[in-house]
């Protein structure tokens, strides 16, 4: 169960602007972190229409990477059973 949960891209990072979302995706690609841009689910309120979905393992590395960049992240959500819970960044 733990392995399959780790593999699930059930964390969603949202941004203030599309440019930030795209920059974040690029950083992930350059660091070989598996991350995918997708439209923000309607149940989440976000400034920018794109969100980055990642799994738990990638999220740890991503947080560290974001701390060393000037990319502004808006919020972080955890998704389970089609419900989104906002987490502390």
């Amino acid at each position: 169960m733990a392995d399959s949960e780790e593999a699930l891209n059930n964390f969603l990072v949202t941004f203030h602007a599309t440019s930030a979302a795209m920059r974040c995706e690029k950083i992930c690609q350059q660091s070989e972190l598996d991350a995918h841009l997708r439209p923000v689910p309607r149940d989440i309120s976000s400034s920018c229409g794109l969100a980055l979905e990642v799994n738990e393992v990638v999220l740890c590395d991503l947080k560290e990477t974001l701390n060393n960049s000037d990319i502004d992240v808006e919020a972080l959500y955890f998704c389970r059973d089609d419900e989104f819970v906002e987490l502390e960044l």
Partner: peptide
């Protein structure tokens, strides 16, 4: 339109939008 903050009628202040 900027693709961001679409629910708001004010122009986003974030760059580059």
């Amino acid at each position: 339109g900027t693709g961001s903050k679409s629910d708001q009628l004010t122009q986003p202040q974030v760059l580059p939008d």
